[in-house]
Simulated assay, not measured.
Amino acid sequence: MKLIIGLGNPGSQYEKTRHNVGFHVVDFLATTYSMRWERRGRAMIANGTIGIEKVVLVKPTTFMNNSGEAVGELVRWFKIEPDDILVIYDELDLPMGQIRLRPQGSSGGHNGINSLISHLHTNQFPRLRVGIGRPANSRIDTVNYVLGVPAGDERIELEISERKAAEAIPLYLEKGLEAAMNLLNVDPEAQRKAEEKKRLKQERREQEKRLKAERIEQEMTSKQAASGQQEPENLSVSD
């Protein structure tokens, strides 16, 4: 069994903020797999299966900075080891549209992860970070940014990122952490450059083939012309 934990803040005023992407992802999973939310202690949970894996979706209701209190209670209740949880949360240092799956690590300054590390007494638990990017205007306060509601195209981009994260969960459950990381943690720019390099290499190969074919054709034409000049004319003599 796995605990799939989305981090966020409860309450309608926070519902659509960047900081609540973890909630959005597990809500999407609950809808997709027909799971119903119910209260358990200081969290909302939804039980079900994804593929052949039994999962419990979790939304702590303790507010982001105290997420570890609710998660710690559930880990003890379900007798789950830290490596059987997956935490989903927003990441300022990832551009919008990118996600990263990691087996463990520091909090990177994220208060929700800080709280989990404190209450689980370890940082050895998998996490899926969803990029929200940093504000384009450096004068915008970070707290106001993460607690802000994106609008227009940014809202659409964030929803695409959240759906991408939700679609990564079945892959993680089916193939395991390491295999899923190899498939998911692809730098889009590096991938674009690799594809461009492959395309240019293919074009050069095709160009070399064309040039070789043209040289062979020219050589054959030259040989035929030379052969024609060396043969004596077949003159017809009439009596």
Score class of each variant (00 low, 15 high):
76 R>Y: 01
12 S>L: 15
79 K>V: 12
67 S>N: 13
4 I>S: 04
188 P>H: 05
3 L>R: 04
78 F>Y: 15
161 S>H: 00
232 P>Q: 13
88 I>Y: 13
107 S>R: 04
129 R>H: 09
230 Q>H: 02
20 N>Y: 10
179 A>C: 06
155 R>Y: 07
11 G>P: 15
92 L>T: 11
120 L>H: 09
192 R>A: 13
1 M>H: 08
11 G>V: 12
155 R>P: 03
47 N>V: 05
173 L>T: 01
173 L>P: 00
132 I>Y: 11
112 G>I: 10
9 N>A: 03
62 T>C: 10
27 D>Q: 02
2 K>C: 00
88 I>D: 08
21 V>A: 11
127 R>H: 05
23 F>R: 01
228 G>N: 13
157 E>P: 00
78 F>V: 11
66 N>A: 12
226 A>Y: 14
74 L>T: 05
54 K>P: 02
181 M>W: 06
171 L>G: 00
57 L>A: 01
167 E>M: 09
197 K>G: 00
39 R>I: 01
35 M>T: 01
39 R>M: 06
204 R>Q: 14
222 S>W: 14
57 L>P: 07
232 P>R: 11
175 K>N: 11
214 E>R: 06
27 D>L: 07
88 I>V: 13
134 R>W: 05
153 D>E: 08
31 T>H: 06
3 L>W: 03
102 R>I: 13
227 S>E: 15
224 Q>F: 13
237 V>Q: 04
174 E>Q: 07
221 T>K: 15
208 E>K: 02
185 N>Q: 06
215 R>D: 15
157 E>Q: 10
222 S>N: 07
177 L>Q: 09
191 Q>S: 02
136 A>N: 14
120 L>T: 13
83 D>Y: 02
125 F>N: 03
84 D>Q: 14
130 V>I: 14
233 E>F: 09
116 L>A: 05
11 G>M: 12
86 L>S: 07
235 L>Y: 11
55 V>G: 07
214 E>G: 00
9 N>F: 01
191 Q>V: 09
149 V>M: 03
210 R>E: 12
138 S>C: 01
109 G>C: 07
36 R>A: 05
49 T>N: 12
160 I>C: 05
195 E>K: 14
72 G>Q: 10
165 A>L: 06
65 N>H: 07
126 P>C: 15
116 L>D: 04
98 Q>A: 15
33 Y>G: 14
162 E>R: 00
73 E>T: 13
220 M>S: 10
112 G>Q: 03
66 N>E: 06
107 S>H: 09
157 E>R: 06
214 E>L: 05
60 P>M: 02
55 V>K: 03
100 R>P: 07
145 Y>E: 12
137 N>C: 11
207 Q>L: 00
35 M>S: 00
214 E>P: 06
141 D>R: 00
139 R>D: 04
70 A>Q: 02
105 G>T: 07
227 S>A: 10
45 I>T: 00
160 I>F: 01
124 Q>A: 12
50 I>H: 03
63 F>Y: 07
151 A>H: 14
71 V>F: 09
147 L>I: 09
151 A>T: 15
109 G>V: 14
116 L>Q: 04
224 Q>L: 15
20 N>C: 13
154 E>W: 10
195 E>G: 04
